[in-house]
């Protein structure tokens, strides 16, 4: 079943076209990788899917589980199971990670009409997710991304994913800024999270994350279009040859 379906999506900022007609289908149980050179439109695609309002959608549609979400607010998309791990996670000083996560989890429960999780159950859930990512439980008491190292910020994004259990997770350059050990821990966390009813879209510049999480499909974006799709071997080919041979097509 198609979890995420993007058809002919064209997006601009000001009068500058960024995406020029993207088609993408992501089914349950799949891992997709979206690769491409800097400035190709990868991050724009990730943000537009999540509902960031700084972009103008010129045409096309985005559907989640068969329902169009193109005009929904970011929070409605989140409640329907869409998650974006940010490339540059922002700080919210004075708001503890715990408080932030609880507010997020509660909002999902309310939207689904479920009762709120108790503080004790929530603590347990948060602690076990933190442990899985090799984070000290004290980490949960600190302000959201406040004074975190680059690697901690990225792990914090994955922590939020593990807790919110989205259907479709778009991970924007989650591997950047991670050292080899942290990369392995994060990759293991993502791998353990994937199952037959959810899907993960990895947006990345490099192939190194894909050594840990083998993608079912690899798509290459250049100049706002998907110029090639294939399996993992495409990523390896890119690693060897770079992007220029595709851009010049």
């Amino acid at each position: 079943m198609n979890l995420l379906e993007i058809s002919d999506l064209a997006v601009s900022v000001g009068n500058q076209p960024i995406l020029r007609g993207i088609d993408l289908n992501v089914c349950a149980g799949e891992v997709h990788a979206i690769m491409g050179p800097n400035g190709s439109g990868k991050s724009t695609l990730a943000n537009v899917i999540a509902g960031r309002e700084d972009y103008q959608i010129d045409r096309g549609r985005i559907a989640l589980e068969g329902q169009e979400i193109t005009t929904l607010s970011p929070e409605e998309r989140a409640h329907r199971g869409l998650f974006l791990a940010f490339q540059y996670p922002i700080e919210i000083p004075g708001v503890s990670n715990m408080e932030f996560l609880k507010a997020a989890v509660d909002s999902h429960a309310r939207a689904a009409g479920d009762p709120e999780i108790t503080a004790v159950d929530f603590m347990q859930m948060a602690r076990s997710a933190a442990e899985q990512l090799g984070l000290n439980p004290e980490f949960l008491k600190r302000g959201v991304n406040e004074g975190f190292s680059g690697g901690e910020k990225k792990r914090n994004e994955i922590l939020q994913m593990l807790i919110l259990k989205p259907k479709v997770s778009i991970l924007d350059e989650t591997d950047s800024g991670l050292d080899i050990d942290a990369l392995r821990i994060v990759a293991n966390g993502i791998s353990a999270f994937t199952n037959t009813i959810n899907a993960v879209v990895l947006v990345t510049h490099y192939q190194r994350l894909l050594d840990h999480i083998e993608p079912d499909f690899v798509h290459v974006i250049a100049n706002g279009s998907i110029v090639r799709s294939g399996d993992h071997s495409l990523a390896l080919e890119l690693e060897e040859k770079g992007y220029s041979w595709l851009e010049n097509d």
């Binding site: 998309r77 000083p93 708001v95 932030f100």
Partner: peptide, 23 residues
């Protein structure tokens, strides 16, 4: 900051009040 909160499902009013309380 607002977009981070909203992407996690938190409505904008609650998000602003949380950010201000943190401040």
């Amino acid at each position: 900051q607002l977009f981070l909160c909203r992407q996690r499902g938190i409505d904008p009013e609650k998000a602003v009040s949380m950010i201000v309380n943190g401040f």
